[in-house]
Simulated assay, not measured.
Amino acid sequence: MTADGVTVGADHRFARTVTEAFAPAVLAAAMVVGFALSSADSLRAGVLWALLTALFTAAVPYAIVRAGGRGFLPLGLASCLAGIGALAALGAPRPLTAVVVVLLTTGVVVTAVNRAWRLSAHAAVAAASAETLVIAFGQWMTPLFVVVALVAWSRVRLGDHSPAQVVTGAIAGVVLAPPVYVLVA
């Protein structure tokens, strides 16, 4: 039961858990850590690339959005852009830079669309992440699209988005990821 006396069922609690566990900042952090570790010359270099990249793509954007709400999303995107600049200047592995460009592009498109209609950033980032992993590591990553479906369900179940908003977000992520990743990687 919540503070306002409304009973919250197990499915609502599960939806909240899914939404938080696969939030855009969490997925961004997981993606950059995975790509940093898999594309670096050594474990030490991978850890350093992961820390640097997660700072720009997950930690700073998450802190900005939490502090100021959705209106501060462009500042979080600016942090990602600064991260791309740092990665380029420091000679980061191309697959790592490519995944950050995918995340930035997805964020920019979602932000632009959200000026007129509310697209699900959660679904877009989940789909872009899954699609990028399939492109980078092969078809055996395809089952990760179950996570995209769970994220979409959770956003609708929580009343944060309509089915059309999550489906459109997922489509945006799947459409954006391939050309961006392939061009940069």
Rank of each mutant, 00 (worst) to 15 (best):
L51S: 13
I84L: 15
P74F: 03
S79Y: 03
G71E: 13
D41H: 13
L51K: 07
S42G: 09
L73H: 12
G76C: 02
R66V: 10
L73N: 08
R44S: 15
S79E: 06
A50Y: 06
S42W: 03
W49P: 07
R44I: 10
A50V: 04
G71A: 12
P61N: 03
L52S: 13
G69V: 07
R66W: 08
I84R: 07
A78M: 11
D41V: 12
T57D: 08
L73E: 14
G46M: 03
A78R: 03
Y62H: 12
F72E: 10
V65E: 10
L43Q: 13
L52A: 12
G71C: 11
I64H: 03
L48E: 10
V47H: 02
V65G: 04
S79F: 01
R44F: 08
A58G: 01
G69A: 10
L73K: 13
V47I: 15
G71Y: 01
F56H: 09
L55W: 13
A50P: 06
L55T: 14
A54S: 13
A58F: 02
G46C: 04
A67T: 09
D41G: 15
A63R: 09
G68M: 10
C80G: 10
V60Q: 04
G76I: 03
A59C: 12
A45K: 08
A58E: 00
W49M: 05
L75D: 00
V47E: 07
G71Q: 08
L43N: 11
D41S: 15
A50E: 06
G46F: 04
A45S: 15
D41E: 13
L77N: 05
P61R: 01
A54C: 14
G69C: 06
A82G: 12
W49F: 09
T57N: 10
L81F: 11
A78D: 07
A82C: 11
A54E: 03
T57K: 00
D41I: 11
F72A: 15
L51M: 14
L52C: 10
L52N: 08
R44P: 01
L55K: 05
L43Y: 14
A58M: 05
A45P: 06
A45G: 08
A54W: 00
G46W: 02
A50T: 07
F56D: 06
D41Q: 14
V65K: 08
L81W: 05
W49I: 06
L51R: 09
I84G: 01
V65W: 00
G69I: 08
T57R: 02
A59F: 12
V47R: 02
Y62Q: 14
G69N: 06
V65M: 09
L52F: 02
A82L: 15
G71K: 07
I84W: 00
G46S: 06
P61F: 02
G68S: 11
L75A: 13
V47N: 02
R70G: 15
R66T: 10
Y62M: 12
L73V: 15
C80K: 13
R44M: 10
S79P: 00
A58Y: 01
G83W: 04
G46T: 07
G46V: 04
L43K: 13
L75Q: 05
A50L: 05
R44T: 15
D41L: 12
L48T: 14
L81G: 11
A63H: 06
A54L: 02
T57Q: 02
S42C: 03
L55V: 12
L52K: 06
D41W: 10
A50Q: 04
I84E: 02
S42Y: 01
S42F: 05
V65S: 06
L77D: 02
I84V: 15
D41T: 14
S79A: 15
G68P: 05
